[in-house]
Design a binder for these strands. Structure first.
Lengths: 236, 236
DNA sequence: GCAAAAGTGTTTAATATACACCCATGA
DNA sequence: TCATGGGTGTATATTAAACACTTTTGC
């Protein structure tokens, strides 16, 4: 474990990709900060910073998130990958542990931090040229999110406390970039056993009101039992 | 990106979990090195070291591997996870980027490196107490390998150039720790379209000789086409 | 001819996909 | 009564799982 003399230690940053959805579920958005100084002055970048002595990598990611947004309830946070190619930062060796976070749709406003001259949301599907290798990191994050959406409930947290199944489906279609069949989607999503009807409903125009659901954080019952319960609820 | 004064930068190591299978496909093995000095002197640990200035993280993992074993053909290498909890190394902040590597079954002997007083293979299912949080890292690696075995061809590289389907099945059963149905296994594995018969066969006792296969590195044809081709081959 | 592993199909269950109409609402 | 999105079921195809006997070999 002895370190060779004369080789400066690499710098380590934790960068956090903060994702949310735009109002009306029309867009998947990522929070970027504009760099004030060289290199890449004026370019947009993923917010990040150094790890403080006493904190874990995940805590560093959470701190970043708190510094960049007024987010209170974080829906999801996961380590994405560690990027460490030499030359990815012209100033010297920088190793970046990337995390990605999902925050609910409610009107989150970015607030400019100490470092960040400016911070704002961008569409994940219409990104500016980014600093460093951050474009590649975002590609990687989107691929991971898509893969996980297929077989987990990660996506649920992007919506608020209560949501309709149509909203959830719009979210899936938005991120996966393909149309889903309404009936099959509802069946599959309810079969996961993590959604429970709140009993309330919401009207969103001149048509039948939509039932509201909430995400059951506790690991629900088995899919089969969940479906049965859902059918029973329906019969009432 | 400015760094606060007075906070020493964390050390970064790349640790590589080197996995292979024991002769006779009876065991999944991991290469560990015995620590010569404190902390955890005498305990076994995952081989690792610092990143050299000019190399990528993956290159560092490959270098480790070359230093610890006489491996020539590496079957698989993937970044696993980055561990950085404060306190995981009593000497100070150490962030470890873990990789895992699969090397073919052929008689790989570890050779003691500069740092490592001693290096040897251990069964993944009968591990000694490890230094640092390395036990947890191995758990994580095994979980990842198992998950990937279910839907990819990662495992194939653990066998040599040529192998029988029974050997491949033994490998899967060994790592997944459950019995598999022979017929279903062969069907599924051939349907992946990445295995081609070499035309040769091997005798391994007083019974019918087993056909040999090789791993087709090039992305083969579609599963359906592969099965058709297999059936056609069979008919000859 | 016997012991031992290699090699082969079919039946059934579970899961995924495709697809069209009625419902509740406010204007 | 109409326009709008909400809500439901069934038939078919695909995939996964269970299951047993014949073949080839050396002794």
């Amino acid at each position: 474990m002895a370190r060779k003399l004369g080789t400066p230690p690499p710098a380590v940053t934790v960068d956090t990709i903060i994702l949310t959805v735009g109002a009306g579920l029309t867009d998947l958005r990522v929070l970027l900060v504009r760099r004030g100084r060289a290199p890449f002055a004026g370019r947009w970048a993923i917010p990040g910073g150094f790890v403080e002595p006493g904190e874990s990598l995940e805590q560093a990611a959470r701190r970043e998130l708190a510094e960049e947004t007024a987010v209170t309830d974080l829906a999801y946070l996961e380590q994405l990958y560690t990027f460490g190619d030499p030359g990815r930062d012209p100033r010297g060796r920088v190793i970046t542990v990337a995390y990605y976070a999902l925050v609910p749709a409610a009107g989150i406003e970015p607030h400019a931090g100490d470092d960040a001259a400016d911070a704002r949301w961008f569409s994940m599907f219409d990104l500016p040229r980014l600093a460093f290798d951050h474009g590649r990191i975002l590609d990687y994050a989107l691929a991971r999110l898509r893969a996980k959406m297929e077989y987990t409930t990660v996506g649920f947290g992007l919506l608020g406390e209560e949501f309709t199944l149509s909203e959830l489906q719009s979210l899936y279609e938005l991120i996966l970039r393909r149309r889903l069949d309404k009936r099959n989607f509802r069946r599959r999503i309810l079969a996961m056993g993590r959604l429970e009807p709140t009993g309330r409903s919401r009207m969103n125009g001149v048509h039948r009101p939509a039932g509201l659901y909430r995400f059951a954080r506790e690991k629900g019952s088995t899919p089969k039992a969940a479906r049965k319960r859902h059918e029973a609820t329906r019969r009432k």
